[in-house]
Design a protein around this nucleic acid. Sequence first.
RNA 1: GGGGGAGUCGCAUAGCGGCAAUUGCAACAGACUGUAAAUCUGUCCUCUUCGGAGUUCGGUGGUUCGAGUCCACCCUCCCCCA
Length: 284
Amino acid sequence: MKRLTVICGPTAVGKTAYAIQLAQKLGTEIVSCDSRQFYNELNVGVARPSADELAAVKHHFVACRPVTKPYNAFDYEHDALQLIEQLFEAHDDIVAVGGSGLYIDALCHGINLMPDPSSELRSTLSARIRNGELPAMLDELKRLDPDYYAIVDHRNPIRIQRALEVILTSGRPYSQLIGRPLPERRFLITKIALRRDRDTLRNRICRRVDMMVADGLIEEAHGLIPYRDINTLNTVGYKELFAHFDGATTLNQALDNIKNHTWQYAKKQLTWLKRDPEITWVDL
RNA sequence: GGGGGAGUCGCAUAGCGGCAAUUGCAACAGACUGUAAAUCUGUCCUCUUCGGAGUUCGGUGGUUCGAGUCCACCCUCCCCCA
């Protein structure tokens, strides 16, 4: 049976190096599931593997699309699955690495098929949220899909928006669409989550941010100013520098913010991974 | 030496007689099915059987039914003139 080994864990634990070593040992290639390393324009700020690392093992889904083209977990599932089937023709093992929990879940278990909302609908709904119409939207949701209304976080506008998008374009309750069983993967999945003690991880994060600066993070962010309103650029490491470019913070404050926010992100990743019973934890 | 201003729960900030005390950040925990490094929630003086209870606003006294808020003195810091 073919096997996919997924390497996950918080940012800056050392997933990249671990995955490369494993892939070399298994004589195989790497599929990234990092929602930010997909993009051509994002390099040092998203800790893309170095040129040497990319040369050591063939990587997929790294720097493969422009930030201007929207992408999501469902598209990723589709693309990655297709690629994986293809890679299994030549390999018994494949290594996947990444820190984006939703994308890892999409790869390992899939996401229910739902119709794509038109971009008009999406922008209409987000405009309504900006205009403070969330309560009215909640009423709509209550009427159209009481089951989902009962469980969603009423204060999370994105959740409400998404549910309405799906309901309005499919004509069916969102709660029905997300509940359906998903087909099992036709390959074995082993999930390994890397872990380090808090202090070590925190230090690694701080050191890595300093290294990113030495590697040109500030210049990279500066060059990305034209794209700053794209959601993909709403990313730790860039948004803090955009604020600095605006004069809202000093450079040192911006870098401190990046370190803190990266740490918060690492904890959020851990929270996501903790509830996954399939994971085997490995202490580094 | 003279004049002015300020000390609030880790940091910053509100507060001008009814306050365990505003807001932001940080911290801690959590949610998450197509924006996910996104978005959102809870806790955040101490104890709590989660109903409350006990201690707080530089210090010491005082005025008041009641003081972070008013008065006196003291301590510390900042600014201006010398």
